[in-house]
């Protein structure tokens, strides 16, 4: 297991790049979902006011 994490001395470069990509892609994927939720809520409020 330790051997797998060390990746023959290249562990730092591999795990840093994989985690940065994971964070960037997850954020880019999730942000429109939250935005849509907010949009639908504010549209619903607007409809109820009328």
């Amino acid at each position: 297991m330790v051997e797998f994490l060390q990746m023959g001395g290249h562990g730092f470069y591999i795990w840093t790049s994989y985690s940065i990509v994971l964070v960037v892609l997850l954020y880019t994927w999730l942000s429109p979902h939250y935005r849509r939720k907010r949009q639908l809520q504010s549209l619903l409020r607007q409809i109820r006011r009328q």
Partner: peptide
């Protein structure tokens, strides 16, 4: 498997 020249660092290719 690891690369014969670059060792394991080449695994970055799969996301790069």
């Amino acid at each position: 498997p690891p690369d014969y020249q670059m060792g394991n660092s080449y695994r970055i290719i799969f996301i790069h």
